[in-house]
Nucleic acid binder design. Structure first.
Lengths: 193, 193
DNA sequence: TGTACATCAGTGAACGCGCGTTCACTGATGTAC
DNA sequence: TGTACATCAGTGAACGCGCGTTCACTGATGTAC
């Protein structure tokens, strides 16, 4: 049953992709190694040929999620010049589509759980957040480097908060209102500062 | 071993208080019925004399947490007149003290987990959020009722997002910067709108 | 290039453990007369 | 008011179950000559 080196590498990537999606969907604690392996079309026994532990999987798949999120935000930002790029990223993130579809954002899906994860996992989350901060800050022209980073942190954490709360409430009207009003409020903030 | 009616009622309250604190500290999934009962100074066997299931405990203790949070915000708001009351509540919530101490806010502690809880639990969370919204909105003078509620929703979800992210990142400097800058940003928003 | 052997990806079953829940039991409290 | 009995809060052990992890085994791949 041994697989070629290429197949092995592909399997590893398949497990990582399945893990990233399953953890975001069901949470870290509630998603078992067997769930992830089944989602990747494998049985649980083979897991430890690819990863040292569940924690290592969480860490690495979180890194993958964060990279994808960064690329998706880069795409939205690069479509428009200057500060309008940030507005586009905000509108994209706080869209109804993002509310309903499997979310690409581990902060919104796992935020409060991540605070209780191992130091290694939290460091991966921190690096991901900082990476998004730099991306947004680079478009907040006319501010000092330090100030633009701080403003970017506020914008991003507000986005995460809005999506987290919108996902939490069972009142659909309230959820859409939170997203719409936060889009409006943050866009004004980006344009005016 | 039977206890008096009064003692029974006190025990129930003790379990609820322990549950609220333990769930916020360790998350809902990771905190077992036995953990809660031990924190209340009891053994797990007696749990079902007081509650129908863990889900019922989660629902009721979440309601308790939300009531306490509302009272604490009411206290901060009532200390100052008009919009300054909202600023005081923001400063209180986004303080370093709140970052470090056992948090009274279930949204910041459990936000992403709550989105995956039972409909009953999510409805309790929704009612709690709406209650805070009304409280904040009542102080956003000069706006229509609908607009003030929407603004309140943005302010609250931004507060939750800032605290969630600040708790998540392993970089202390970044955490304090997020809190400070969000305080500043929201305060300006409250004063100017 | 062909052959013999070592490696190891993946399977399926098992490990110990902790979970939510149930239950027999205890003895103090509450109730009925 | 006093007594006999029913109730039930709390204990401690057990239930089935799913968890993360380990392991014997398989057979195709990789390596050495």
């Amino acid at each position: 049953m041994r697989k070629s080196r290429e197949e092995t590498a592909q399997t590893r990537q398949r497990i990582l992709a399945a893990a990233a999606a399953e953890f975001r969907r069901g949470g870290i604690d509630s998603t078992g190694v067997a769930d992830v392996m089944a989602a990747a079309g494998l049985t649980q026994g083979g897991f430890y040929r690819h990863f040292e532990s569940k924690d290592a999987l969480v860490r690495e798949s979180l890194g993958g999620s964060l990279n994808e999120l960064r690329h998706s935000m880069e795409g939205a930002i690069k479509g428009r010049p200057g500060r309008a790029g940030v507005v586009a990223a905000i509108d994209d993130y706080l869209s109804l589509k993002h509310l309903d579809s499997p979310s690409p954002c581990p902060f919104a899906c796992l935020g409060s759980e991540l605070a209780r994860e191992s130091p290694e996992v939290r460091e991966a989350a921190t690096a991901g957040f900082k990476s998004l901060m730099e991306l947004v800050a680079s478009r907040l022209t006319g501010l000092s480097a330090a100030t633009s980073r701080k403003e970017a942190a506020v914008i991003l954490s507000s986005m995460v908060g809005a999506m987290t709360v919108a996902r939490m409430v069972s009142d659909r009207t309230l959820a859409t209102a939170i997203l719409a009003q936060t889009r409006k409020s943050l866009s004004e903030q980006v344009r005016d500062k």
